[in-house]
């Protein structure tokens, strides 16, 4: 008998080549309609945005086809009308700073509330767990606008909180929460909380609790078990949840518009402004690409962390 031959390099027979080509062709043909739809309705137009970011704004809207990098310059700097000095665009930087700060705080806040919640759901027995999970998925799939409206009704001056506090006699005048950064933060944490809980739940659900038993067996106390055993193992879930909250927070539009009013804009609203009253499509386009790049970096970070953590996808 001969051993498995490895001497001559693998050469596909004509038949195999034909079968392989057939398979690849079939798979591409099946995927093609979806690809075309997404090219028309999602990916393709992004390229136009990229092109527009290097154009000159038109008088009313749109662009004039004169290439320039002015829009990219405008993101960070402004030129003084009178003496042509270049200064940092403070107004823009404030908006970026707010977007970043609120997104990070939202992520932190949802993590603080989400981790115990996910842990609680994952440690319920069988059928009870399905019920709790169902309770967390209802807000997940409920229209974001509706949930934002619901929180608006709670925090506005004549809303639930202020009325309750007045009824208690703690305050005479309503506390102004609405149209502040705090309102946007509360709102985003509220609407994005389920996005944090679900991946955390998935990670904790897979967690093998015999490891906790081993931890206690080796003299760890509850805090040590949490810090040294549970958290390191569910870390991929924590990263996934954080990215899932951070990315949409950064691009949030509805929540800051409803709860932040006109002044407390985030980058999403600022982009919209350039296509509306601002009439500066190139600036709006360059801002969009910038946002896209930041999100891409965050996702890349996530993919790397997930691969290291050995979690699927």
């Amino acid at each position: 008998m001969t051993d498995t031959s490895t001497t001559n390099a693998r050469q596909l027979s004509d038949l195999e080549v034909r079968a392989e080509k057939e398979r690849v062709k079939r798979n591409w043909l099946l995927s093609m309609p979806a690809m075309i739809l997404l090219l028309l309705g999602a990916s393709g137009p992004l390229l136009i945005v990229l092109v527009y970011s290097f154009m000159t704004p038109g008088d009313y809207s749109g662009v004039i086809w004169t290439p320039t990098v002015k829009a990219w310059f405008q993101i960070f700097f402004t030129v003084d009308i009178f003496d042509d000095t270049v200064r940092l665009a403070d107004a823009h930087l404030t908006i970026f700073g707010r977007s970043l700060r609120l997104s990070l705080l939202t992520t932190l806040l949802t993590l603080i509330f989400g981790l115990p919640t996910a842990y609680f759901i994952a440690t319920r027995p069988g059928r009870q767990r399905t019920l709790w999970l169902f309770l967390i998925t209802i807000p997940f799939w409920t229209n974001l606008l509706i949930r934002t409206f619901a929180i608006l009704e709670v925090i506005r001056n004549e809303g639930l909180i202020n009325n309750f506090l007045r009824w208690l006699g703690v305050i005479d005048e309503p506390i102004q929460i609405l149209y502040t950064d705090t309102a946007v933060l509360i709102g985003m944490a509220y609407v994005y909380l389920p996005l944090m809980v679900l991946p955390l739940y998935a990670a904790i659900d897979r967690f093998d609790f015999r490891l906790v038993e081993a931890g206690y067996d080796l003299y760890a106390n509850r805090w040590q078990v949490l810090r040294r055993v549970i958290l390191p193992i569910v870390k991929p879930g924590i990263i996934a949840g954080s990215i899932l909250v951070f990315v949409p927070s950064l691009g949030a539009y509805v929540t800051p518009r409803v709860l932040g009013g006109g002044k407390n804009m985030m980058i999403g609203n600022f982009i919209e402004l350039q296509f509306g009253q601002g009439r500066n499509w190139p600036l709006g386009s360059s801002l969009s690409i910038l946002l896209l790049l930041v999100v891409a970096v965050a996702l890349l970070f996530y993919v790397r962390a997930a691969n290291r953590g050995g979690s699927d996808e």
Partner: peptide
């Protein structure tokens, strides 16, 4: 991709 970016595009 953030929805607002796709929307703009």
């Amino acid at each position: 991709v953030p929805e607002v970016v796709t929307a703009v595009a």
